[in-house]
Design a protein around this nucleic acid. Structure first.
Length: 362
DNA sequence: GATTCGTGGAC
DNA sequence: TGTCCAAGAAT
C-alpha cells in the first residue's frame, strides 16, 4: 500500500470541510451543553471504551448527583461506585475522584490547562488530556481515540496496527500538522463524530463523507481494508459458585471486593471458583474455607448466570444457604444487610441479576 | 509492550 | 451464536 502523510493532502480543505460538517451534523449530547472543564472531563472518562448511547443516562444522573468538581471531591466511595454501577471499568470513577481531589488541593479547584499538568492527574491519559485541552480550553492538542485512528488511517492511508499502543504516536504526530489551530475543539470532535456517524468500522458512508475529496482510501477503494487491527485473544471461562446466604433475621451476607483488581471496591455475594458444578461437598467445603460458614446448601442451583469480561467469562451457579455468622479469611469486609439495604450498595451486573431474579423474584 | 480492566449492542 | 467491539489508562 502506498502510504501518504499529512503534507500530501489539502490541509486547508480537509479542515474546513470537517469543521463545517461538524457544526451542521453534530449530535445534541448533554456534555455539549457548555464547555465547563469538569463536565467535559466527566464525559470523556465515561466515554472511554463506552458507547454514547450507554453513557447518556449515566452522565445525566452523575451530573445531577455531582454537579460540580467540589461535589464529586466531597462524595464517598460508596456513592461514586453506586453512581457508576453498571457502567464498567470501575477504576475510572475511583481515579476520577482522586484526580478531582488533587485539582481541589493543588490547583485551587481549577482544572489545569497544560498537557503536562493535566496528564499528571489519575485516569487522564494522552487521549483524555487532548480532549479536555481542545474542547474545554481550545488548545490545538491532538486527541487520538479509536475513531480518530480509523478515520485518519483511511484518509492518510496509514496501515500500522491500531491495536498496538505505539501506533497512537503516529497519529498524534500527523495531527500536530493537521489540526485546525482556529478551531481545535470542532476539529477534534469532528474527527470523532465523523468516525461515529459516517466513517464507521463496517460499511463506511463514503458517498456522504464531507472529506471524501481528501481521502486516500476512498480514492483507491481501500476503505474496507483500513484500519489494520490485530485480533485479541479470547476470554477464559471460569466456573463459579455464588451464594445467597440468609440468616434467621432475614438478612443477606455480602462482601466488599478488594480495592484493587477486577470490579475493585464493588460489593458481591459470597462466591468462589469451583471445579465440579453442583458438588454439594465442594460447595460446603468452599463456604467453610472462604467464609467460615457451616451451612446447609441446597444441591441444585437456583440461577445460572454468564458474566462476560474482556479476558474472563464467569459461569456462575447461584445457590441458597443459611448461616447466622460468617468470618472471612481474607481482608475483605463482610456485612449482613436487609433486602431493602441491598440497593444502596454497588454490585457487578452478574450480582445485580442475583438480586432481581433470585431475591426479588422478578 | 502485553495484559488487565466491564458492559450491552450491532452484525 | 460468536465475534468485535466503543470517545483508553494503568500496570
Amino acid at each position: 500500500m502506498e502510504l501518504r502523510c499529512t503534507e500530501q493532502i489539502n490541509i486547508q480543505a480537509f479542515r474546513s470541510q470537517l469543521v463545517s460538517w461538524f457544526y451542521h451534523n453534530q449530535r445534541d449530547l448533554p456534555w455539549r451543553e457548555n464547555r465547563d472543564p469538569y463536565r467535559v472531563w466527566v464525559s470523556e472518562i465515561m466515554l472511554q471504551q463506552t458507547r454514547v448511547d450507554t453513557v447518556i443516562p449515566f452522565y445525566l444522573n452523575f451530573m445531577r448527583q455531582f454537579p460540580t468538581l467540589t461535589a464529586l471531591a466531597d462524595a464517598t466511595e460508596d456513592e461514586i461506585l453506586k453512581a457508576w454501577e453498571g457502567l464498567g471499568y470501575y477504576s475510572r470513577v475511583r481515579n476520577l475522584q482522586t484526580a478531582v481531589r488533587e485539582v481541589v488541593s493543588e490547583y485551587a479547584g481549577v482544572v489545569p490547562n497544560t498537557r503536562e499538568e493535566i496528564s499528571s492527574l489519575k485516569g487522564v491519559g494522552p487521549y483524555t488530556a487532548g480532549a479536555i485541552l481542545s474542547i474545554a480550553y481550545s488548545k490545538a492538542e491532538p486527541a487520538v481515540d479509536g475513531n480518530v485512528m480509523r478515520v485518519l488511517s483511511r484518509v492518510l492511508l496509514i496501515d500500522e496496527d491500531i491495536a498496538k499502543a505505539k501506533t497512537r504516536k503516529t497519529f498524534e504526530n500527523e495531527l500536530y500538522q493537521l489540526i485546525d489551530p482556529e478551531d481545535p475543539s470542532a476539529f477534534n470532535q469532528g474527527l470523532m463524530e465523523l468516525g461515529a456517524l459516517v466513517c464507521t468500522p463496517t460499511s463506511p458512508g463514503c458517498l456522504l463523507c464531507p472529506v471524501q475529496s481528501e481521502c486516500g482510501a476512498y480514492k483507491q477503494g481501500l476503505q474496507n481494508e483500513l484500519p489494520v487491527k490485530s485480533k485479541k485473544k479470547k476470554a477464559i471461562p471460569k466456573q463459579m459458585a455464588a451464594f445467597i446466604v440468609k440468616n434467621k433475621k432475614g438478612q443477606f451476607l455480602i462482601e466488599k471486593r478488594s480495592e484493587k483488581g477486577l470490579l475493585a471496591g464493588l460489593w458481591q455475594f459470597p462466591n468462589f471458583e469451583i471445579f465440579q458444578a453442583d458438588s454439594k461437598q465442594e460447595l460446603e467445603q468452599g463456604l467453610k474455607a472462604e467464609y467460615g460458614i457451616n451451612a446447609y446448601t441446597y444441591s441444585d442451583s437456583v440461577q445460572k448466570i454468564e458474566h462476560v469480561f474482556s479476558h474472563i467469562i464467569w459461569n456462575i451457579n447461584v445457590y441458597e444457604a443459611e448461616a447466622e455468622e460468617a468470618i472471612t479469611t481474607k481482608e475483605t469486609p463482610l456485612r449482613w444487610v436487609t433486602e431493602a439495604e441491598l440497593e444502596t450498595f454497588a454490585f457487578p451486573v452478574s450480582h445485580q441479576k442475583i438480586i432481581t431474579h433470585s431475591i426479588r423474584g422478578e
